[in-house]
Amino acid sequence: METKDNVVLHVADVHKRFGGLHALADIDLQIEEGKTHAIIGPNGAGKSTLLNVIIGRLAPTSGAVVFDGTVLTGKKPHEINQLGVARVFQTPEIFADLSVLQNVMTPAFARRDGAFRINMFRSTDNETEIREEAEAILEDVGLIERRGVNSGALSRGDKRRLELAMCLIQKPRLLLLDEPTAGMSRHDTNTTIELLKKIKARGMTKVIIEHDMHVVFSLADRMSVLAGGRIIAEGLPSEIKGDPRVQEAYLGGAYT
């Protein structure tokens, strides 16, 4: 299939089989630069598998993932990140033994210094530029007051915000979010939505997997509905809401 103009991520004819299970079939997704694309679907529809294929954690059985002209399939996670793809996990993955500030500084080093560099004779204390940048991001996500705290002591909502900050400091071109508000209170969810809207204004492309329809409809420019490993519908949120197939497969009328 042809890649359209200004498409930054193209998931082309991806199939993924686990033994007899056809987890993903005929997945073709084109995500435009600067847009927020939501992927929704019932449990077991293959959402997380799809995300894992995109990020290189799983190899597709066939097909390819192309990011900005580069084939991601077969690349290692750190190579994919170096190309400008960052990911927020379903359960926050942070450096629990490090302080909040160090958690945000580490990814900044990866962006500045590349995948491997022994900067043994510099001092982290003297990296003023990176520290200031990290503090600015922490300000954005509302964790600046807690920069000195050991991040393992944060609440779940704060850990997720921290993980988001760790991705944001890398200024990725593509941000993948796996249920960014799962397990959050309504208040935390709303702050996260505000935060994600703010990033949207910066023109970062985002792919969001989400259960919470409130989140999806507040953020998404386009949506794909996944059921049984296939994309059964794709379009603007308003179109998806009214699509009878989607309502049958997933929404079940409850959200309309």
Binding site: A96, L98, F109
Partner: peptide
């Protein structure tokens, strides 16, 4: 002391803390 205080030392500590996050953060472990 130099290694402990350097970005290199921080990277090593981050690897100890969470290897998966480290590789998804762009570090070749």
């Amino acid at each position: 002391q130099k290694i402990f205080a350097s970005p290199f030392g921080m990277a090593l500590r981050s690897i100890k803390s969470n290897q998966m996050r480290m590789s998804y953060t762009g570090f070749d472990i």
